[in-house]
Amino acid sequence: MAQMTMIQAITDALRTELKNDENVLVFGEDVGKNGGVFRATEGLQAEFGEERVFDTPLAESGIGGLAIGLGLQGFRPVPEIQFFGFIYEVMDSISGQMARMRYRSGGVHHSPITVRAPFGGGVHTPELHADSLEGLVAQQPGLKVVIPSTPYDAKGLLIASIRDNDPVIFLEHMKLYRSFRGEVPEEEYTIELGKADVKREGTDVTLIAYGAMVHACLKAADELAENGINAEVIDLRTVSPLDIETIIESVKKTNRVVVVQEAQRQAGVAANVVAEIQERAILHLEAPVLRVTAPDTVYAFSEAEEVWLPNHKDIVEKVNSVMNF
């Protein structure tokens, strides 16, 4: 076992797959010689050559099209979109094209593409870098959307994403890139897509989260424990499709739920989680399922992040409402 940051675990996963499968291609803006704006692809071009790891012109839509075309020639493209806020430029390639390739060709073609993109707040980025837009892609049939919160999950999920023969959107929270280290096996391993992980077991209330909010939930759970409330924390890890089994099992145990996301209330995937719970486990609920989210404004100007982004205090407060319903 090695101690790695999440970004190191991501690089390690990319290296593993570049080594394992000669069809894997890593490309994007500044991912080659420069090793990526966050060093996620550091050293990969030097190790695998320009044929495998290469820079592209500055055009997200072109990058998406390039990935689709390379996929049609039997490659396994792992393109990077520098910041997920730039997804609007490549929305057609992702949702209009690669997501539909298998279906529209009646299974003749497919798009074994993993789109990597950083997102997430708390690091004072400029405009349209930190926006949580996973809700947009989670609504597109044909995609899977993966969001890791730990170095261990990041490596196993990224390897699984790259090996998946359908398109996966792999979103990397910028605040989690280097904020802590975790144990990561040096050998290859995969984590099944569509499987949530119970990050903390509890009996009184279920906190369902993903991305940076997993850590906010864990912090909130510690605080709640001091007041005798034993919270279970579920890290969704894949936000589309959802791991219904793990969610419902927990709800049946705790009977109370708060869904936590960094995205605005009208965005993200929390509403979907709430809907699934009420359809499948309403008789197990002692209180309504409440949501912790950002307010429904455009993403905050960077100086306002602190007052705008949801945090562990918001979670504690919401749990108290659910407990005292």
Binding site: G65, L66, G69, L70, D92, H109
Partner: peptide, 28 residues
């Protein structure tokens, strides 16, 4: 469903999308 040996995708409805994809196929 293109038959075996017909190297093509079906007609593209989104005007322009076939162009960026062609660049990818050609690079491949």
């Amino acid at each position: 469903q293109m038959p075996e040996g017909v190297h093509a995708v079906s007609p593209q409805i989104i005007i322009g999308a076939q162009y960026v994809q062609a660049a990818g196929v050609a690079l491949g």
